[in-house]
């Protein structure tokens, strides 16, 4: 069970207080109606499943109800950093496209 630091409550809390919300930094297209079916499908359904560093969104569901981002190693389950919505990760995998993190 994870021990997660909530960047809003500024405390470590048990995983039971949080919900995982999947991959982070997936911005809703600014003009959905201009998207092709493929682009919209990409936004809707396609997610990374990396072995190693993963940026993911969590919500402090039974705490402050705030969403935030977590950089987690999917192999060791280490949480490398926690950062607020709208911020960029400081720890990024070598082979990851750094521009991908710009959105949010």
């Amino acid at each position: 069970m994870f021990y997660i630091y909530c960047p809003y409550c500024k405390e470590h809390r048990e995983e039971e207080e949080f919900h995982a919300k999947g991959q982070a930094h997936i911005a809703r297209p600014a003009d959905p109606d201009a998207c092709t079916d493929e682009e919209w499908g990409e936004y809707l359904y396609f997610r990374k499943n990396p072995r190693g560093l993963h940026h993911e969104m969590w919500v402090h569901a039974t705490g402050c109800r705030k969403f935030f981002n977590v950089t987690r190693d999917t192999q060791t389950y280490e949480i490398k950093e926690v950062y607020k919505m709208g911020e960029r990760p400081s720890i990024v995998a070598q082979d990851q496209n750094p521009t991908a993190a710009k959105q949010a």
Partner: peptide
């Protein structure tokens, strides 16, 4: 409620 918060906090802050 979580759905509303999700859109407010992540898309339309």
């Amino acid at each position: 409620l979580e759905w509303l918060e999700l859109y407010h906090q992540t898309e339309w802050p």
